[in-house]
Amino acid sequence: MRTDGTLALLDRWGRAALPGTVLLFFVLLTLAPLRAPYLSSALPLLPALVVFQFSLATPERLPGPLLLALGVLLDLLLGGPGAPVGVSALGFVLIRAAVVANRRYLVGVPFLFQWIGFCIVCWGFVALVWAFTTLWTWAPIDPVPAMLQYVVVIVIYPLLAPLLARVRARDPLNVPELSRGGARTGETTL
């Protein structure tokens, strides 16, 4: 272990806190009155995008309990009367688990395949939230708005994901054990 100066310490803390902070920002952003057509309807799914991307890049800096807490916060802020609290938390935890289980594959493949991976995982997330909300409120809920959200966030993914992916260290061997996944030297996303 190196002995660190204050600046290096701050740097390390900053790095450790970055994914959580970005996720918190996007959770709060879901409520921001942006009023951009289509974009604002997709805002509630952006945290799921962030969870996917950071689970791919640095899962050790986005631990499960943190996801649980932020998911509950999202549900509390977003939910109306009767909406289940904790369903986003469940979704986040499952996204992380799905990504971490397939990291070996996902970090090595071209961007297009990561996008397809996100399409599949996000579909699961939307279906989960819709199913639970329907069960919980015991009322038929029109699935079309949820589908629209899904389509918009899929389109947004290529714009946002490369930006979020910058937190990832270039060489997968130059990172802690957990975030290395099954990657070998030379297997980089870029």
């Binding site: 009155p33 309807s41 509630p44 977003l78 909300t133 959200q149």
Partner: peptide, 14 residues
């Protein structure tokens, strides 16, 4: 209005 509370399941605001 400081926040939109609009999702696939709700129409509201803060």
């Amino acid at each position: 209005l400081v926040g939109d509370s609009v999702s696939a399941y709700m129409r509201g605001a803060l």
